[in-house]
């Protein structure tokens, strides 16, 4: 199926207003409100004409400070594919910075489990209904969410001194020269 046909079918199912299409950029995507995400995903996986069985990728993006962007929340991108029908779908949703909560899709695709944990770990996006939402890459007692644009680099971790240029005050020791 062409992505335009998929999006048209989604629109008829979930309503004209709910799904906002964008086909100008390098990748066509549908903007979906965060509370609708599990329903849309379930439909994409189960409806025989879509049959999206492979969850390729989940990306979280921090929008704070992005040029031409009034929103300072997070955007989450779902890249989904059907191995049988060989088509891809890209969904996006946005959440507010103060309350970054999205319903989890880990019960629909197993793959989403680790991806959501990773987004939680690095960006602090909370996926409600996730069975085990703990840090996956960073150490368990890590402080802060590193991929947020306002992340402050650590100066010390368990007694080990860290010196980073990334810090505002330029405390990076680094290599001499």
């Amino acid at each position: 199926m062409e992505s335009s046909a998929i999006f048209a079918a989604l629109k008829t199912k979930f309503g004209e207003a709910a799904i906002d299409l964008n086909e100008d950029g390098p990748e066509a995507f549908a903007m979906v409100p965060s509370e609708l995400i599990p329903d849309v995903c379930q439909h994409l996986r189960d409806a025989p004409e879509f049959d999206c069985d492979l969850f390729s990728c989940l990306t979280g993006v921090d929008l704070k400070g992005l040029k031409g962007e009034t929103d300072d929340g997070f955007e989450v991108i779902y890249n989904i594919e059907s191995t049988g029908k060989a088509h891809c779908v890209s969904l996006r949703t946005r959440v507010a910075r103060e309350k970054p909560e999205i319903p989890s899709v880990s019960s629909i695709w197993e793959t989403a489990d680790w991806h959501e944990r990773e987004s939680f770990d690095l960006l602090g996006i909370v996926f409600t209904g996730h069975p085990n939402l703990v840090r996956i890459l960073c150490a368990d007692d890590w402080i802060g969410y590193p991929l947020r644009k306002d992340y402050e680099f650590p100066t010390e971790y368990h007694g080990i001194v860290c010196e980073f240029e990334g810090n505002e005050d330029g405390t990076w020791g680094g290599h001499p020269g």
């Binding site: 590193p146 650590p154 860290c162």
Partner: peptide, 20 residues
């Protein structure tokens, strides 16, 4: 030795194993 390519932005990388 000193964090290598990750010395500058690698928040999770130890900057030299001789700290441990």
């Amino acid at each position: 030795i000193k964090g290598g390519p990750y010395a500058k932005y690698g928040y999770h990388v130890l900057q030299g194993v001789d700290r441990v």
